[in-house]
Amino acid sequence: MTNPSQSLIIKMVSRTLATFIQVFGIYVIIHGHYSPGGGFQGGALLAAGILLIRMTEGREESQPTLATAIATPLASLGAVIFAGLGVVILFFGGNYMDYGAVPVPGMEVPVVRYYGILIVEVGIGLAVMTGLVSIFDDMVRTNRQSGPDMGRGGMS
């Protein structure tokens, strides 16, 4: 963390591994309807991929992967996707989180629910990934050594 590895091989391996982990994470989110898994597990896997890079390359070097500054707003965005979906349903006259109340042309109610769950899972995935990365970043940030990018600004 504070002593990022300089070894090229480790970097290469971790980058590759991270990619696979993240692909698997996305798969877990999407495929959560049919097999174990879902937003949280997938999100945690996505986060694990990023954390792997963070750990091997150091926090500053790996910023381009997911900048700390946007991690928190993205976590908020994930939660907003979830909560916002519920609010949107209110406008269609359903109860909060009643996906079935949204009239989608050409779709049976269960299918609408299916996609509702999917959207929710994506929101969870996003929120969990960025949330965990944000926690990790806050933890490993050293007190006095620094980079120029420390938490400057949000999405203003």
Partner: peptide
């Protein structure tokens, strides 16, 4: 309140 809490993090520090 929860939605507001999500929006409150946007913005300059």
């Amino acid at each position: 309140l929860l939605l507001a809490s999500m929006f409150a993090v946007f913005g300059k520090r």
